[in-house]
């Protein structure tokens, strides 16, 4: 969304043949933030000012979301990672740290694997990873029924159309611990963003690429990451499992759970999340 955040500038970056929307501010070593579904760069609003005291913060809209383009293809996580790398290159950064949440966490991991020379550290927030040994078994978890729904071609767009708020608000509420953090007006911002032409499809394409992502990640994990990885989740969602999950992909993993927190870490527990990220990226 085009909501303003004090001290940050909105940019439209030409990356290959797509436009990527970036919100940039702060000083220090560069840090790119990659949001999840059904969100946009706006999910980072509460922690961007704190992070910007120590980093040049670049919050992107992923291909398919917010004000970035929604082309017909290129939604596998390696392609989304290429968008992020390209955006950082346009901004003049060849080495940078990465933090991703949800789908953005999958992109962050893909970016770390596909641009080892550029990614200094990676933080992975509250998501299951394609390539994880439990990835396929996880499809049976009733909490991720939407994976299969989103992977279905065409029909979800028709069913969600005009009911973006109903869908998004239910999705948030079912995965929130601190409900005070996501009032209706905030949810409405995400719903309206999704209602922009192409954005519902764009977000669903991230799920339709899962089979490709899983195959890629199985290949990548044969050469584990050597950079430090922070694996962090809400204690009511992925926190209890996320460190062991990431240890399948990397040799140097720290992290765990943030207390009293669901899936929406940067919004439900911004102070604790920012604190953990700053400590990790300052090392």
């Amino acid at each position: 969304m085009n909501s303003e955040l004090n001290g940050f500038r909105h940019k439209s970056l030409r990356v290959g043949d797509v436009k990527i929307h970036a919100v940039v501010g702060g000083d220090g070593p560069p840090l790119v933030l990659l949001h999840g579904w059904p969100q946009t760069w706006w999910e980072w609003r509460r922690i961007m000012p704190v992070l910007a005291e120590h980093h040049t913060v670049v919050a992107l809209d992923l291909r398919g979301a917010g004000h970035s383009d929604c082309p017909q293809s290129g939604y596998d996580k390696a392609s989304l990672a290429e968008d992020a790398h390209g955006a950082m290159a346009v901004l003049g950064f060849s080495r940078y740290a990465v933090c991703g949440h949800d789908i953005g966490a999958m992109v962050a991991l893909a970016l770390a694997f596909t641009h080892r020379e550029s990614v200094t550290r990676v933080a992975v927030l509250d998501a299951p990873m394609p390539g994880w040994s439990q990835w396929e078994a996880n499809f049976a978890d009733p909490m991720v029924w939407h994976f299969a729904f989103h992977m279905k071609r065409d029909l979800p767009e028709r069913l969600i159309y005009g009911r973006e708020f109903d869908y998004v608000s239910t999705f948030f509420a079912d995965r929130t611990f601190n409900h005070g953090a996501l009032p209706v007006e905030e949810v409405e911002i995400y719903a309206r963003s999704m209602a922009q032409p192409g954005n519902t499809r764009g977000g669903l394409e991230w799920y339709r690429a899962f089979p490709v992502d899983h195959a890629n990640a199985l290949d990548w994990k044969r050469s584990p990451l050597t950079i430090p990885v922070l694996a962090l989740g809400g204690d009511h969602r992925w926190g209890p499992k996320i460190v062991a999950m990431l240890e399948e992909f990397a040799g140097d993993v720290s992290g765990g759970s943030i207390r009293d927190c669901g899936h929406w870490m940067a919004e439900e527990r911004p102070a604790e999340t920012a604190d953990a990220l700053l400590k990790f990226f300052a090392q």
Binding site: E136, A137, T170, F171
Partner: peptide, 25 residues
């Protein structure tokens, strides 16, 4: 038939999800 990772159908999870299924249909 319900195991999506083995080609099962999406609609089992969708139909079981709760009020949101009614709302979307």
């Amino acid at each position: 038939a319900m195991d999506v990772s083995k080609g099962g159908s999406w609609h089992f999870g969708f139909n079981m999800a709760g009020d949101i299924s009614e709302e979307l249909v």
